[in-house]
Write a protein that binds this DNA or RNA. Structure first.
Lengths: 232, 232
DNA sequence: TGATGCACTCGTACAACGTACGATTAATTC
DNA sequence: GAATTAATCGTACGTTGTACGAGTGCATCA
């Protein structure tokens, strides 16, 4: 019974030459690998959504048989985990760790986080329900360090971090769920308009129809930071 | 071709007597109805989670054939929508609409909202990705009215509402996803502890191990409200 | 040289799922 | 009684994740 290799390493093969083994397709497909699987899964998720990712379809796109994937990953859940983490990498402007503008740094990282997830809307729904991967932990670590440097008391640090986390998660999933194809958009607006009508205050403020999402995110974030760090 | 009745009404049958039609079970099961279906679906979701709800199992619990459900609901998605909305009803302390303590009212409603969702953790994951139902809209309307009465400027109202929404959604889904059976808890703690170790600031603040969720929710909410309504 | 084992691929098969279809039965209305 | 309607449900189909085990080519060692 093959022990698979779903253990930990997830490294490439130890073959001398990673040259294509000249399969049925004469030198066409570039050989299966964890990296290719994850990258293709992300593509598929982007185009077809969370429900659009099927193991067979993923394998097709890779020019492989469905069961070949299972040599590289343990199961479908793991594909989700890997795809999610791959989308959350942060290449921030953090070479200088002694930046003066801590607030700017925080806002930059959080906006980048949100933007990345909105580029891959499925990730917004995935993040809150899967275990934390390395890339998101790295972001939390950065956030921790920055806030700590900014003078947030240790006793308030966790509350501050979770508050910002909550805000970003909530804002992103909500935005992502309002995202629709252009055809559906009209119908959805229609539905919301007719719903609003039974809720006068909502209707007056056009809560459900306003779509300056980016502006609302920024302003709310400012309010939250005001509350979290009132000293400055 | 039966037109079904998935149209709108979702009312009970127009039969004279809703007496059990004396099916195979001699007067045992109390007859199918939308209400029973939704209530049983909630039970099933509570015990078996989002993935545990299957049409066949739901029908079994109701003492009915699987396909009988489809007379009352259009499809499984609709079952989710109905179960979700049924869990979000708010019976607030709002007979007096001229309460002096607007901040207390807001906090009460939001805490009740969160508590309700945590009693049914699946609802936390469902809410952000389904269309808004009547009960959640009613909560938003109440929130709107209260904040407006509290003196939040119309221009800031939507930002304030969405900020609170984001905060509650984020806090609740996060908390719900950390919820685990007691057996898994030890393993998860272990995993988090060993993960933390590569992230020094996170480790120092015990971000992932601290579990005073309720306290963190309250404090963060206070900070947010401080930011949103600095006047008072 | 041949034999052995490892890294990897994939065809087949199965159980579980949502639900289309149409037969069936019981109540209501003419 | 005949026709209509409301409701139930057995059967069947297509789709999914994945268990199982056979197959293939390479590297190593005898």
């Amino acid at each position: 019974m093959a022990a698979k290799r779903s253990g930990a390493g997830s490294k490439q093969s130890r073959r001398k030459t990673p040259s294509p083994p000249a399969g049925p397709e004469p030198g066409n497909e570039p050989a299966l690998s964890l990296e290719r699987i994850v990258a293709t899964a992300v593509e598929l998720l982007d185009t077809d959504g969370l429900d659009g990712l099927k193991m067979r379809r993923l394998a097709d796109r890779l020019g492989a048989g469905a069961m070949s994937l299972y040599w590289h990953v343990g199961n479908k859940e793991q594909v989700f985990d890997l795809a999610l983490d791959s989308v959350l990498e942060y290449r921030g402007p953090a070479p200088i760790d002694t930046s003066k503008d801590w607030r700017g740094d925080v806002v930059h990282m959080l906006k980048d986080w949100r933007a990345g997830m909105l580029r891959h809307p499925w990730s917004a729904f995935l993040l809150p329900r899967r275990a934390l991967g390395p890339n998101i932990l790295a972001r939390l670590e950065l956030l921790s360090r920055t806030l700590s440097r900014a003078g947030v008391a240790d006793a308030d640090l966790n509350v501050a971090i979770w508050s910002l986390w909550n805000y970003v998660i909530g804002a992103t999933t909500t935005r992502a769920s309002f995202e629709l194809s252009d055809e559906d958009r009209a119908a959805a607006q229609q539905r919301l308009a007719s719903l609003s009508q039974h809720y006068p205050t909502i209707e007056r403020s056009r809560l459900l129809l306003d779509n300056d999402w980016d502006g609302a995110f920024s302003k709310g974030l400012d309010f939250l930071l005001d509350g979290l760090v009132p000293k400055l």
